[in-house]
Design a protein around this nucleic acid. Structure first.
Lengths: 195, 195
DNA sequence: CATAAAAGATACTACTTGGTATGTTTTACG
DNA sequence: CGTAAAACATACCAAGTAGTATCTTTTATG
């Protein structure tokens, strides 16, 4: 990685961390640059404006991160229902970067920016559609191998699961990890009923 | 209602509408007052600062609204499972004020403010705990009358349902009403499994 | 009506924000 | 090495922000 690439990705990583904790609009460019070797000149050399930086952050930080944690594990699974539960379990309880009080970076950004900015909305849509697609494939695998009932609608299941995730990240901000465990418990019941 | 009470609640109602669409931090006091007969002097006569106005908005606008739509209908119900589904159905599809692209005011505010402001977090916790309490009572009614299985954990169910709601409001911002219907379909399956 | 307090209006300030203008340094490459 | 472009640094600005100081009007009450 060249020095220039390094400053660019440094900006994005730091922006990601701050935006995760404070929100996109509440995180100023100065916030991103303070206590950092990078200056405003470098920032605006690499990004036309704050919006382009935000979109780059989604594509270069959030999208790959999501793909590794959510899509890859689902693709090569033997037991679909078990794998879906594990995905959620690991996502909620085993992601070292995530903090309960700050929720999920993607959910936060959707909540804040989807209604305000069409470009953000498009970029974030791709993100969760990719996740839903992986779940759909997984469910259809289960239907093909007979471990999931044939009348199950994979698209609806994917929507239900991704929605539940976003919601529990939201409530977790208020009630802490306890509701993660409640959610997982009921999710298991829901998933079993698909079998 | 006296004239003063009217200006006060006028500020709160207008703040609620704008904050619903733009977020709390992105809504300036000037935004709230522009195209309105109320001036800044009146605003700061009625509220010590923006934070107190926001807290008053939660208590005087959001809390009563939530109570009417979510708690009251659940309290006097004959068929708990059916009532829970109807609550969600009406909430998602029959609330005239809500718009898919803007989600739910309470969910939005939790997402944005819970990690940033302890007073907001407390006020919003009361809000959703009240809702969860109503669901718990409802489920326990069902357990007592035999329409819900005795091994069902009411607290967990409440958590699961409220989480699902918040999440589908989030995803709805990206994917529109289609996912509301998907969610409702799967929610019904989940609820039936409690019987 | 008188008057004190409540309610509201106006003008201002200190500070933050995204962005720019203009400079200097570093790097790639013939 | 020389030089042009890439990469970065510094100083600044116009717009917007929450909040204040100070004044005027309205309202309730004896």
């Amino acid at each position: 990685m060249t020095k220039a690439e390094n400053t660019r990705s440094g900006i994005l990583r730091r922006a990601f961390s701050l935006i995760y904790q404070k929100g996109y609009q509440a995180t100023s460019i100065d916030d991103i640059l303070v206590d950092s070797p990078v200056t405003k000149g470098a920032f605006f050399y690499h990004f036309k404006n704050k919006e382009e930086m935000g979109l780059a952050m989604i594509q270069e930080i959030m999208y790959p991160g999501m793909y590794d944690v959510l899509v890859t594990p689902l693709n090569n699974s033997t037991n679909p229902v078990e794998e879906l539960y594990l995905m959620m379990h690991n996502l909620l309880l085993k992601s070292p970067f995530f903090q309960v009080k700050y929720g999920c970076p993607a959910v936060n950004l959707i909540e804040e920016m989807a209604p305000l900015n069409e470009a953000f909305k498009q970029a974030l849509s791709k993100l969760i559609l990719q996740w839903q697609k992986a779940i759909i494939t997984n469910v259809n695998n289960g239907k093909n191998t007979g471990s999931i009932k044939p009348d199950v609608n994979a698209e609806q299941v994917a929507c239900f699961i991704t929605a539940g995730y976003g919601g529990v990240r939201n409530i977790g901000k208020l009630l802490g990890t306890a509701c993660y465990h409640s959610y997982l418990h009921e999710l298991k019941k829901y998933l079993n009923q698909l079998q």
